[in-house]
Design a protein around this nucleic acid. Structure first.
Lengths: 226, 226
DNA sequence: CGGAAACTATGAGAATCTTGGTTATTGAAG
DNA sequence: CTTCAATAACCAAGATTCTCATAGTTTCCG
């Protein structure tokens, strides 16, 4: 489990990192609020363990900034401030749990694991995205660079399948099986035709193409703008 | 917010219920483990607050049973047992937080609200269900009693809308606006016809009907098998 | 390099499916 | 018994999908 510890006290941090590793997790460490925030944003953590008093940027401020940006990674606040008011403030600021120092490592571990349990939970992919092309499976809508794109049912399924396998090459047989539910070769170029139409909708008029032909193999959707 | 308090100490329970109400929530109460478990299962709670030592059935046992049945409602454990080991045991048993007695109500409230945040959070309704009829918005499929049902696009939207308002009466005007995007009265019986077609697919041949006519008002989908 | 072969793209039309609408008849509720 | 709803049967318009013919590309080999 990927855990980011933001804690300035070197000794406390070392102890915590070592113990987390022994418990089978993959902790990383920042020793001030600014670096911590940056790390928190740039990586995909399962849980953050944040000390409240930090140099450069306060722990609560880190959490608030994170939450304001829409990040919902669970946060366990660690603090020497142990009054009820301190706890309430911490939780209200966006913390998911609050543990006062000194703490027992076994309890911290249990609490961290409770928090991560949530995150791993019912995570359903409702939006599929490549570059500026977004397909929303619930709203049943497609947009590129903010522009609404209207797709026919079959085109939608086709794009959905391609996006599910973004970056990979998708063969005609795969498309036949998964988008058309054909389990035989229809001996026609249905797919080519639909790819053509889809391409004219999602690529034509935009900066760079996303739907690529892989000669002799099939098709592939990927961001090749850079 | 719907909160179930399972606590046997009448005085403590009364105090807690009163305070939760004042904070704007809707608490309910059970004073023993068995009733608590039953209530927890049969209703859809946002958070459970469970005392650890309960008559008839231990608090931890309630939680374990709940989790074993797939229920993931957040649980805050309340207990006089305040040792680290007790806390760890409680959290490992499936609790999401652990508060030792005596506690400050403000902290309990903050923690309960943190827990409910999760539940309300990134919860996307991907499946809509009434009785044995399931509509999966991602898979774009409909089944009743395990049998696949094939719906036309318009029928799908119609059923989706009805299920979103399961139990409520849906008027023709609502359907016209939300399923047909008409903002006027077409003066025809389009809806009746589609309802009829939908009904023949989802109700005909099954044990009991789900799609009911509410004379003079509209339609309603609900489980009336019992 | 030249050109055939293999592969892919696309426009146009045909075929099919879906929808909205009509009507007549039957059924149910008040 | 009157009114509202349900259903079946049917049609036509429009949407959607598939087929086909043709044109365009790329690859490969002599």
């Amino acid at each position: 489990m990927r855990i980011l510890v933001i804690e300035d006290d070197r000794e406390a941090a070392d102890y915590l990192l070592k113990a987390l590793k022994e418990a089978g997790h993959s902790p990383d460490h920042a020793d001030n609020g600014e670096d911590g925030l940056e790390l928190a944003i740039s990586n995909n953590w399962d849980v953050l363990v944040v000390d409240r008093m930090l140099p450069k940027r306060d722990g609560l401020s880190v959490i608030e900034t994170l939450r304001a940006s829409g990040d919902e990674t669970p946060v366990l606040i660690l603090s020497a401030l142990s009054q009820v008011d301190d706890r309430v403030t911490g939780l209200r600021a966006g913390g998911d749990d609050y543990l006062s120092k000194p703490y027992a490592f076994s309890e911290l571990l249990a609490r961290v694991e409770v928090l991560s349990r949530r995150k791993a939970g019912p995570q359903v992919e409702t939006k599929l995205q490549v570059a500026d092309l977004v397909l929303d499976r619930l709203a049943h809508s497609v947009t590129r660079a903010g522009h609404e794109i209207v797709l026919q049912p079959r085109e939608f399924r086709l794009l959905e399948y391609l996006l599910k396998h973004a970056g990979q090459v998708v063969t005609r047989t795969m498309l036949l099986e998964n988008v058309w539910d054909y389990h035989f070769d229809p001996q026609t170029n249905v797919i080519d035709v639909h790819i053509s139409r889809l391409r004219s909708k999602i690529d034509k008029g935009f900066d760079y193409p996303l739907l690529h032909t892989v000669r002799g193999a099939g098709y592939s959707i990927r961001d090749s703008s850079n």
